[in-house]
Design a protein around this nucleic acid. Structure first.
Lengths: 250, 250
DNA sequence: GAGTGGTCTAGACCACCTT
DNA sequence: AGGTGGTCTAGACCACTCG
């Protein structure tokens, strides 16, 4: 009696998972229409959607608003602690990166950033908004908030390139330590639209406060990743507070 | 014309968000039943569910299977790179932690872990399964996979305590570096049941491979966190790989 | 204009939890 | 036993995308 009856949506999930595993459904390809799947499995669209949402949560498929469901490509492996350039990182994983600048403007510091960046209240920041794609698919929406004093006339620069490089070459600023924050949340507003996500879809928010070589806070990035497009991997050479034994051989 | 008509579910989301912000709905409390909300907003359960799912994705509310919807408590701030004890960490954030051991057994190494832990194929590992709660609510399901040779008779120990401490006191093993992997995915199987999540709910999977003070791999943790219960925060003192110019002046 | 997903209606029965 | 969410039916109209 503990026997759990198999639900229709579980059947759909199971079948699609097999098709995905067997490569019958190829990454990047579109799935049949919801109505078509409902016919195939002799059920209603709502039940089909239920199953698709589950596979979406797993990251096996993704949705583009009003365009349909697609098979996910492998996740980008990303280490926020290493300051590698996005294009370099993506290329190293045999994918093609592109960056589009959405805007660059001066704004009042968002309230949440005032303590994070140790700002005076009502400070002004330079905000750069960009969207980055892998294999033509937008996967990352980023807002950079820069301390204006350190970056005069940055709006006149080419902002589609690596900002890390721009900071170094144009402004002589090198990243030192950084502090970041990884939080699973939901897409909203411009981030949702840009990533072609429904309002409220799960995303991974990575907020990073960056220091320069002198230990000054120079900027803060707010990254919104499609939840199925990324995997974060960090190799921590344990800073063993106290014991100096980290380099002893086995 | 670009004017977006406000959907009913958007109205529900907006109203509930306000109630949550104003503390009219208190963390830990149960929301009204779906049917009741449907009446309140003069709509159907499906539309109400739609709205609730969005708030769930944001982490503002959560579901317990067949029990109802509840208001989320603040996220635990967690740094996987620092090996602090779970109970200590939780207490430091003014919450109450508890740990329950689900089992300890010898198993064949799961296929995914063979390369991760540099094992010989068909190796055996000691698996410990635990569930950890904050303020009585299960938020974390963990499987620890230990190299058996380093941990003789560990099944006879009290496994509800900090394993870090046990490793040190009983086995003389201290954590050195570790490598971890953070991946937004979906709950399944025992993890879903233990966390009282629906199969397919979004979770944050943190996989960590740990080395000891001699640089040997000693174990691997697979943590499944409720996506709304945690925020990861890492302070990276930048290990400047390669370029020796990191301390040069501007 | 045809097809797609987005949203919604108005119900229904079941499995499980709580009392 | 009564209430809850879990699942499902069989439709409908709308907004948007694409060819």
């Amino acid at each position: 009696m503990g026997e759990q009856r198999t639900t229709q949506s579980a059947t759909i999930i199971h079948t699609l998972r097999q098709q995905l595993a067997s490569q019958a459904l190829v990454p990047g390809n579109k799935l049949p229409a919801e109505r078509e799947l409902a016919d195939l499995f002799a059920t209603t669209r709502i039940t089909v959607k239920e199953a698709l949402h589950t596979l979406e949560a797993e990251g096996l498929i993704y949705r583009e608003e009003r365009r349909g469901w697609f098979v996910s490509r492998p996740r980008l492996v990303y280490n926020p602690a290493s300051r590698s350039h996005f294009h370099t990182l993506v290329a190293a994983q045999n994918r093609v990166a592109s960056t589009r600048v959405l805007g660059c403007e001066t704004v009042l510091a968002p309230a949440e950033l005032v303590p994070e960046m140790a700002l005076a209240p009502l400070s002004r920041l330079t905000r750069i908004r960009r969207v980055r794609s892998i294999d033509q698919r937008p996967v990352l929406y980023v807002e950079h908030y820069l301390i204006p004093d350190y970056f005069p006339a940055i709006a006149d620069q080419d902002l589609s390139q690596s900002l890390t490089r721009l900071y170094e070459i144009q402004y002589g600023l090198h990243y030192g330590r950084s502090r970041f924050d990884i939080c699973p949340t939901a897409a909203c507003g411009e981030a949702a639209r840009t990533l072609s996500l429904a309002e409220g879809s799960p995303v991974l928010a990575v907020t990073r406060v960056n220091y320069d070589q002198h230990g000054r806070i120079i900027d803060c990035d707010r990254e919104i990743w499609r939840h199925d497009a990324v995997r974060i991997r960090i190799d921590s050479h344990q800073r063993n507070s106290g014991s100096p034994g980290s380099r002893s051989g086995s």
